[in-house]
Design a protein around this nucleic acid. Sequence first.
DNA 1: TAAATATATAGTATAATTTAAAGAATATGA
DNA 2: TCATATTCTTTAAATTATACTATATATTTA
Lengths: 204, 204
Amino acid sequence: MKDITPQQQKVLDCIQVYINKTGFPPTRANICKELGFKSPNSAETHLRALEKKGFISIESGASRGISIINPEIASEDNEYPIVGLVAAGSPTLASENVEKVLNCPKGFFGSDFDYFLRVRGLSMKDAGIMEDDLIAVKKTQEIRNGDIVIARIEDEVTIKYFQRSAPNIVHLKPANNDFKDIEVNLEETELYIEGKSVGLIREN
Amino acid sequence: MKDITPQQQKVLDCIQVYINKTGFPPTRANICKELGFKSPNSAETHLRALEKKGFISIESGASRGISIINPEIASEDNEYPIVGLVAAGSPTLASENVEKVLNCPKGFFGSDFDYFLRVRGLSMKDAGIMEDDLIAVKKTQEIRNGDIVIARIEDEVTIKYFQRSAPNIVHLKPANNDFKDIEVNLEETELYIEGKSVGLIREN
DNA sequence: TAAATATATAGTATAATTTAAAGAATATGA
DNA sequence: TCATATTCTTTAAATTATACTATATATTTA
């Protein structure tokens, strides 16, 4: 990341202080006033320079659409959306799928993860994964045999053990004798791995 | 702080998710679109209700001037000891029994709790409680039938379902056909309830 | 039953970004 | 040293973004 000039640093600090104080980013006029400019366009120019150098991002056309790019955004708690399994389609984070969010400290599970997924069904009950449990899902394509994956097969989403049986054959194995393995021939059927489970939470 | 309705909670979550995603708050139109309203005014009304109930603050006349009021509960972690089951004796919080502590936000489970207990054995596997899981234990003597309890019988500690079968007869029932009920006659044998399970955590 | 909640249409006024043009000061490289 | 690039700042204005208000209806809750 490139160096910034003293004045650009002043603008960056001004943004951070303003966000800390108000909870939302400043406008150009706010920055202009705060730093004693006579024109919002002075602020605009600095913002563009900071954006170019990678310190902030600006959503074009959006009022107060400034966000600070902060590599160590490691606040203690992070909010993770709880996603419900939908009948069809991937467990996206679109708000209609998000029940609510849950605070969870960094490092709570051994791996980072992206969201909680609400479990439906009992196909993994012998692995201790019960109806209504929350699975912590890490979005990744790096899957090993035996991982518990969230897999999507042609709009059907399921939680199973992953087992690659041949270069183009994958078995999705339940942990419940009442369910059968799902055999996926990758040449015929599209299999998408949404992610893998890195943890589980249950509330009694 | 007053309660909010399910829909208001959705709006609040939508704001939080949007902020997490973009770094700045949503407009009414963003919320409207995200929640599927046809009019931004629906969002406006919910925002005003949330403001009135103290969950957000709105800076009048400021575009994207929404900030979430964080109650101290949301940012406060508590450290809970993780206790291992000892061969004999109760799962006390004496330091020799404490593996480590785990940060957990207030309100993480529906109930308060006092410590995490490391699970040993598979007597409750059909209830989804597996070896090495962490059970969140609330110290209490108020037990109902069907509760998962941490019970101590003459220096032997076990995790089972509680079932009072008669005024002085208690059954501690496993969730695994390989284990038998433990019948406790309270006139002959001392039974001590350490607490009950209010939640579970597992790391894959 | 009254109040609260939820949602819509419609419109106005203000907020805010962006662009163009200009100029001065400073830094950099040949 | 000089030419060029970068930084910094201004005026001015066009355009879009956005909040807010009025009004209405339906449903739910206390």
